[in-house]
């Protein structure tokens, strides 16, 4: 680094202790949401019927999820 006056400060990382519960809790909910939008009532079904699948149907195809 010749042109820099001083090296850039290392950005302060978020402590893993603070991150872990959020990553676990929110991560599970967000992945469940992805599953409901992209896959439920397809190969596997958590919600019964076909209503959810039919409603988000075009989105599933265009997002690249396997459908019909």
């Amino acid at each position: 680094m010749t042109q820099a006056v001083a090296p850039a400060p290392v950005p302060a990382a978020i402590p893993l202790r603070e991150l872990a519960p959020w990553a676990l809790f929110a991560g599970v909910i967000l992945l469940a949401l992805l599953y409901l939008v992209g896959m439920d009532q397809g190969a596997t079904s958590v919600v019964s019927g076909q209503m959810l699948h039919e409603f988000v149907h075009d989105g599933r195809h265009l997002l690249g999820f396997p459908c019909h």
Binding site: I14, L19, A23, L31, F55, V56, H57, G59
Partner: peptide, 26 residues
């Protein structure tokens, strides 16, 4: 239907991106 699917997908991906960002930043 298409709008709801993409908004939910976007929100979910956005949330996960924020979690990954928090792990990666710094």
């Amino acid at each position: 239907g298409l709008a709801v699917a993409l908004l939910l997908y976007g929100a979910a991906i956005g949330g996960i991106l924020a979690l990954v960002y928090a792990a990666v930043y710094g």
